[in-house]
Every structure is written in C-alpha cells, then in structure tokens.
Write a protein that binds this DNA or RNA. Structure first.
Length: 830
RNA sequence: GCCGGAGUGGCGGAACGGUAGACGCACCGGACUUAAAAUCCGGUGGGCUCCAGCCCGUGCGGGUUCGAAUCCCGCCUCCGGCACCA
C-alpha cells in the first residue's frame, strides 16, 4: 500500500444504501495518491493514447464528458490488462475568450485561464478520470510557447514561414485576421460575424508546399474515419489540368494571358476568356473606351463582402464587363474577347480562365447573360436537354481532337501544348497557405523585429522566448493591446543594434496544438522543443480521441507540422495519429427551438455535471454516457436514461448482500453451470466490445450478467456466485470505477480493483455449450433445435427434419443448406 | 450542385448474409404497502387466431441468394462537409 493509504470501513453493514457522494471522493483521492496513471516515459513504450487537449473555457457540461469518459474507460481497461499506457492531459491555453474576459471583467487573461484550468481539473477528478498529471502542459507558459517561436524561426529559415501581402479574412468583432479554415460560410467561426476581405501584410506558413503529401498521407491512414479523410481531401482540393499562355491580339508587348483549365480538350470551344477583377493585367488589358466601365465594376467588387460575391444571385447574373481586348486561342488562332468577372478568383489557379460555355455551366450562364456564342466540343448523349455538358463523349468541332473520348483528348491536347511550348500539365490546389498572424494579445508573440535599415530581422534563438508583457491594460481597449505597449514594441535590431519595432502580432493558437503531443513524453525539457529520443520511442500516438469539429483545422495543421518536423529529422515517420476516433456530440432538446441541439447556455439545454453527480453520482453519469449509444454517433441526453443507469448500479450494489449470504452454499448443479457459462460469455463479450470501442453493448452484456446473477442468487453455488459477481465488478470497473472499487473492497480485497487483472474466459467451455439451430423451410423460420456445438451436418439435418416435419411432409426436398452451429435450411417443392 | 453518413418498435439503440428488435427507457399487469414512492416478478412490433400456430414487418421500388436490416441497381427523406476552385 502506498503512502497516505486510508482504508474504507472493512465491511459495510448489510443493507447499506448506495450513496455515491459518500464513496466517490474517497476513491478519487486514493487513485491520485497511488499514482496509477503515472508512467515512466524513460522506459520502453507500450501504448500512447491521447484525448485532444481542451481549451480551458471553464464551463463543462455532460456533453464534454463523453470524450473524457470514453477515454478513461479505455485507459482503465488497458491498465487492468497490464499495459503500460501514457495517457496525459494538458491545456490549449491561449485564445480569445481569456482576452475577452479580461476586457470585460478586468482580470488578466493568465489569471482567468489558470482559474479555469483548476476548475476543469477538479471536474475531471469528480468524473473519476485518471491522467498522468506529472505530464501536464499549458500552452500559455513561456516554457511551452518559446518553442512555437523556435519552430517559427526554423520554418522562416527554411522558407516555410513568410510574410506576404494577400487579401485576408478580417473579423471586425474579434479584431483580428483569420485563417481560411476559420471562416465558415463567409463568417467568423468563433463569433459568426461576416468576414470582410482586407489586403494586408501577414505571416503565413507554407502549408501548400505540403498539399500533395498531406493528400497522399491520407491513403496511409486506414484507421481514420472515412468522413474525416474525405473532408480533408475536399479541403485540399487537388485538380489536375493544363496551364497555357494566350497572346493578346495586337499587343505583342504584353506578356500574354496565362490560364489554367482542367479541360484542355475543350479549348476549341473557347468563345471568351475571363480574368479576375484583381488580376495584375487588368489595367493593361482595358482599352480606353472600356476604362470607365471596368473601373466601376472593379470598384463594386472591391466593396462587396465575401458573402455578396459568392451569393447565389451573383452566380445567376454572372456579373462581369468587357475589357476591350482579345486573346488569341492558340488551338485555332481565333480571337476571343477578354472579360473581367467576379466568378473568377485571383486566389485560385492563374486568376484567369478560358471560357467554354458548352462544357461549363458557369461559362454557359455568363455567355447567355452577355450574348456570347456557345460551341459544343463534346457530343452530349441522345436526348440531352441540359445546358453545359460536363460528361464523357466524343469530341466534336475540335479539328484533330474530333472523335476522341474526354480522357484521351485531354492527354492529346496537353501533349500538344507542351510540344508547342505554350503550356504544360499543371496541378492546382484549393488549399491556401496558413495565415498565422493574429492581432491579439493572448497568444505566442511572433519573434521578429522590423528595422529601418535591415528590414525584417528574426529574433536570435538565444534571445527566446519573446515574452508576453504583463503590464497591459485591457479595459476599454480596441484592437491589439500589444501594439499599444510602448515597452514591448521598442526593440533593438539584432543585426545592426539600432532601434527597431517589435512584431506585435501573435500566432494562431492552432500552432500551439499542432505539436503539443510531442511534449508530453517529457514536459519538463527546457533546452529543446521536445525530447527527441523519447519522442522517437513513443510516437506515434496509438489512439487519438476527439471531436469531429477538428476534422480539418487541428488535424490538418498537426499533420502538416508533423511532416515539417519529420523533414527536420526530429520525429519518426510522417503521420502523428495513425488511429483516430471521433466521438459524436451529445445533444439535448433545446428550450428555445424545441429541436435537438448541441448543449449551450443560450439554448437552455445544458446539463451540468455537478448537479447530476450530486444527485446520482459520477458512476451513473459515466454508465449513462457510455450506454446511450455508440460513442461515434450523436446521441440525445434524457433524464429517464440517467435514472435507468442509476438503477443498474443500485442493483449491482444491492446484489453484494445476496452474494455474501450465499457464501458456502453448495447450490444446484444446473443453475451453477448456467451461471458459469454466463460469466465466461460476458468476459468474452465485454472484452471484445471494448476493443472495438462499443461500451454501449459491453454495458448491455454486463446488465445481462447482473440479471443472471440475480436469477441464480438462491440456486447457484456460493462460490460460482462470488466468482460471477467479482467478474462483474472487474468488467464494470472501467465504466463505473468508484462503486466497483468500493464493492471490491467490501468483498475483502486489500488492493485496488485496478490491479486485480482483467478476467479471462474459457473458450473451450463456451465451445462445449449447446447451440440453438434455426430451421428454415423455403427461407422461412419454422423451428429451432438445440444441439451440441460442432454437431455434424448429417445429425443436424436429421434433427431439423424432425422439428420441421410438418412443413416437409409430402414435399420434395430439393436442397439442404447447413451452416454449422447456426442453421439448417430446406428448399422444398410440391 | 458535389462529396460523405444515416433511415430498424412509442423512444435510445442491438443484430460475422443465417431465429430482426439484445440491453435499456416508457408503458401495462402482479407482489410488497393502510396508501404512494422505491423495490421485486411477469408482459410488451403489428395483425389474425387463440393457449399450438399463421400472416405481415428494418424509408420506397426492383434485383442477387435456399435465405437480405446487411450485398447490387434506381428513388425518397434527414444530418454533416464543401460550394462560382476553372
């Protein structure tokens, strides 16, 4: 026994009621004192499991519990199976809410964050969740964020971080720019404010350089949900095609217009070309007669929001204007008018397209709206009544491509462009570089200074970390408080020693979470980003559990940074999380809409764990959370369900007395044997169900065992009852840890049930049991017969013949199917 | 529009192509109780019949198979993601 061991009463008096409040805190303290979750990462690796580290918002509801309860259930079962498991927890501690709280209530973000961490830690403990707290990390600590800065500098050196001018997403409510991934439907992911485009100079990570590898890596992740992989594939958005340059008619001095298309086969059908309003050639292409129309149009586009620009009305109208210039289609030498239209985006491809209305609906719409000709270059199928035709078919109106199918024509056209030296095969991605600058205080300072003489100068590694200043006033402030801290902004140029201005932007907090899992193996390490030697042994994470909301954001960034670190030679392999499990949301009926929705205060459907634990205990919450449905599915929280879970635990509790009372009884042989079989079967089922992440069916099996024990309480032998009951307790422990510890102790065991080992089952005993065979006649179930497992076909068919005699008499049996130990099927005629 | 996922009793949900509805909730009946709650025991897909049985049932329509909730084709509905990406 460890230090501080404080034993519970040796034996509960008979009939003691189940009072979770009286037992749960004791065990929580005891587990912590015993350090069951502690693992020495200096030793060899066995298993590394991880739940996505949370943002310490402070408010936890039962919906949040799902992730952690599932993780703890698996963790405890691993421990009982004798595995050495690294199961750490930390805090994604930088972020906007802390700063907003500071502005609103005058508390420093750090204080607010640390208080929330303390609250959440206490909540985990009340849930009976075990972590190796020796490994705890918080991303807001200099010892952590210093390495964000180090990573940034290293990436800057390798050309993977850069400062660039680009139209970026600006949220006027959060007063900061956002990454593309943080804009949902044209609005800020966090606050819902419509995002506006601003042309700003910002810091980027060159994630696009890894687009192909991020895509390819997905194929090597068989244990990721298909859904997440699909979402990432769509987000990266690879498209293959060709790029080529068109001369501008009568303007030999101009560089030519470069376009990207996935359908070079349709080039003979080009009837116009389109450039984006932001295209650098716009001014050159615009003829004097068209100047005022073009300027008016571009001005209008500049002032429209993302939402307006992408609105459906726009897509019907196809807003655009003629430049006055013509491009020469290299395929047939014809001149086509060049338009400016807002349906072409500067940020994709070359910002210019060849328009083929016959094969592209957007071009069709534009052509129709502007009275431009339409030439089909792929023969649509007979009876085609649609507009643009995008399917396969023989090429027409295309000179030397005529008659070829699309794939072949694409090949041929691309080859032709390459031969002529006017174009080449090209791949473009939808993925944009990751904008990491944020104009906020509570994040990692970007470690550069701006010097009048030397320009952008990185802070030398030896001067890291660039610390967040603490003397900051938040109240009544708008914008980035760092920019208003004179002492922070004033810096010396590391290069020339002259006066310089410090960068005041901080990093997107997704930088923090893209590598935190590497730090857990040795969180104290100070002179390196992480302990490479241990990381080499403990990575990858064998099981990563978290919500689907991070399908793109966190999981894409983390994969990217891991590949970068892999290229730096710092981590093994190139995928950090080979196994991913996404738990579903817990929803509840909203008080305002009446619909099932995610729990939130504004919807009045939040169930607070504290009240629930007070009333029923943490074990009840755990049982219900794990029982309500398969963990990957969305499930509805209901009060009745909670009561049912509690009833089950109460039954298990009350059963202790009956089992005790039967001690020493010889019992009836048949009832005893039946109970034994039930016990072995349950061990098998629960072990298998937990292994495939199905605690819901594992609990169903445990309920059945409890029912079997209750049914045999006055008939089976005392020894068999005790064995069955203790097995029930051990199998139930990962699900309901407190009650099982208490009952285990009450049965006289001195050490924790966590150390009692995982029960095993006798496969041979189960194999000896008789099975029920279904008897079908012409596919309909007509009888069942009981037979020993492994009964021969001949014998099984004989038994089945007798049982189904009624349906076989006077008929001719044409065919007999026998599935061993399952069923016999007769096919009859007449 | 494109890409995923899902449609099973009154409800949450179980079912390697082989007894559909495990387990739980809710409901009904019974026991205990002066009574109620709690607890315990039993019942519970629909229909026809009745104590044996029969028919119909997994969103809809087809198909494969001795046999389909499960596999294939075509629809419908819901949920999620992406959406003028050339």
């Amino acid at each position: 026994m460890g230090v501080g061991y404080n034993p519970p009463p040796e034996k509960r008096p008979m009939g003691t009621p189940y009072d979770p409040a009286a037992i749960e805190p004791f065990w929580q303290e005891w587990w912590a004192a015993q350090g069951y979750a502690r693992v020495d990462t200096a030793g060899p690796k066995d298993l590394y499991m991880l739940m996505m580290f949370p943002y310490p918002s402070g408010d936890l509801h039962v919906g949040h519990g799902r992730n952690y309860i599932l993780g703890d259930c698996l963790f405890r079962s691993f421990l009982m199976q004798g595995r050495r498991v690294l199961n750490p927890m930390g805090w994604d501690a930088f972020g906007l809410p802390a700063e907003n709280a500071a502005i609103k209530r005058g508390i420093h973000p750090r204080e607010w964050t640390l208080a929330n961490i303390a609250r959440m830690k206490a909540q985990f403990r009340r849930w009976g969740i075990l972590y190796d707290w020796d490994k705890e990390i918080a991303s807001c600590e200099p010892v952590y964020y210093r390495w964000n800065q180090w990573l940034f500098l290293r990436m800057l050196r390798e050309g993977l971080a850069y400062r660039g001018q680009a139209p970026v997403n600006w949220c006027s409510s959060c007063h900061t720019v956002l990454a593309n991934e943080q804009v949902v439907g044209g609005s800020c992911e966090r606050c819902g404010t419509p995002v506006v485009q601003r042309e700003l100079e910002q810091w980027f990570f060159r994630i696009t350089a890894y687009a192909e590898r991020l895509l390819e890596g997905l194929d090597r992740l068989p244990h990721w949900p298909e859904k997440v992989k699909t979402m990432q594939r769509n987000w990266i958005g690879r498209s293959e095609g060709a790029e080529f340059t068109m001369q501008i008619a009568g303007r030999p001095n101009l560089p030519g217009l470069q376009v990207f298309t996935t359908r070079p086969d349709t080039a003979f059908g080009m009837t116009f070309a389109v450039v984006a309003p932001e295209h650098p050639l716009v001014a050159e292409l615009t003829t004097p007669e068209q100047r005022s129309a073009v300027e008016t149009f571009c001005e209008r586009v500049r002032h429209s929001t993302e939402v307006e620009r992408l609105s459906t009305e726009g897509s019907l109208e196809k807003r655009g204007v003629f430049t006055g210039s013509y491009a020469v289609n290299p395929f047939n030498g014809r001149n086509v008018p060049i338009f400016i239209a807002d349906y072409v985006l500067m940020s994709y491809g070359t910002g210019a397209i060849m328009a083929v209305p016959g094969q592209d609906q957007r071009d069709w719409d534009f052509a129709t709206a502007h009275g431009l000709p339409i030439i089909r270059t792929v023969q649509p199928p007979e009876g085609w009544e649609g507009e643009a035709y995008t399917g396969d078919g023989p090429a027409i109106n295309s000179d030397w491509l005529d008659g070829l199918d699309v794939a072949t024509a694409v090949q041929r056209a691309t080859a032709w462009l390459e031969e002529k030296g006017i174009g080449r095969r090209a791949v473009h991605y939808r993925l944009r570089d990751w904008l990491i600058s944020r104009q906020r205080y509570w994040g990692t300072p970007i470690p550069v200074v701006y010097c009048e003489r030397d320009g952008i100068v990185p802070v030398p590694e030896g001067e890291l970390p660039v610390l967040l200043p603490t003397d900051i006033q938040f109240a009544g402030l708008e914008g980035n408080p760092l920019a208003k801290s004179a002492s922070f902004v004033a810096a010396r140029c590391p290069s020339c020693g002259g006066a310089a201005r410090r960068e005041t932007d901080t990093m997107d907090t997704f930088v923090d979470s893209s590598w935190y899992y590497l730090r857990f193996v040795n969180p104290a390490v100070e002179d390196r980003m992480f302990d490479e030697e241990r990381v080499r042994r403990w990575m990858p994470v064998d099981l990563y559990i978290g919500g689907i909301e991070h399908a793109i954001l966190h999981l894409l960034y983390a994969r990217f940074i891991y590949k970068v670190l892999s290229d730096f030679g710092l981590v093994p392999g190139d995928e950090p999380f080979p196994v991913l499990f996404n738990q579903g949301m817990i929803v509840a009926r909203s008080a305002t809409s009446g619909k099932l929705e995610k729990m939130s205060k504004s919807k009045g459907n939040v169930v607070a764990p504290d009240e629930l634990i007070e009333r029923y205990g943490a074990d009840t919450e755990r049982v219900y959370t794990l029982f309500m449905g398969p963990p990957e599915k969305e499930c509805e929280w209901t009060e009745e369900g909670v009561a049912g879970a509690h009833r089950f635990l109460q039954r298990v509790w009350a059963m202790a007395d009956a089992v005790q009372a039967a001690s020493g009884r010889a019992g009836e042989a048949e009832a005893t044997a039946r109970l034994e079989v039930a016990r072995h079967q349950t061990v098998k089922r629960v072990s298998e169900d937990l292994a495939r992440y199905k605690p819901n069916t594992a609990i169903a099996a445990l309920m059945e065992l409890a029912n079997s024990i209750a049914a045999a309480a006055s008939t089976a032998s005392g020894a068999a009852l005790a064995e069955a009951y203790e097995t029930l307790l051990r199998l139930l422990h990962p699900i309901a840890p407190h009650i099982t510890e208490e009952l285990w102790r009450a049965r006289g065991h001195e050490s924790s049930i966590l150390t009692a080992g995982w029960p095993s089952y006798d496969a041979e005993l189960l194999a000896r049991q008789s099975v029920t065979l279904a008897v079908q006649v012409n596919g309909k179930l007509r009888a069942t017969v009981s037979a020993p497992r492994g009964t021969s076909q001949e014998e099984a068919v004989n038994l089945a013949r007798q049982a189904a005699a009624r349906w076989l008499d006077g008929k001719v049996v044409v065919k007999v199917v026998h599935v061993p130990d399952r069923m016999v099927a007769f096919v009859v005629r007449g």
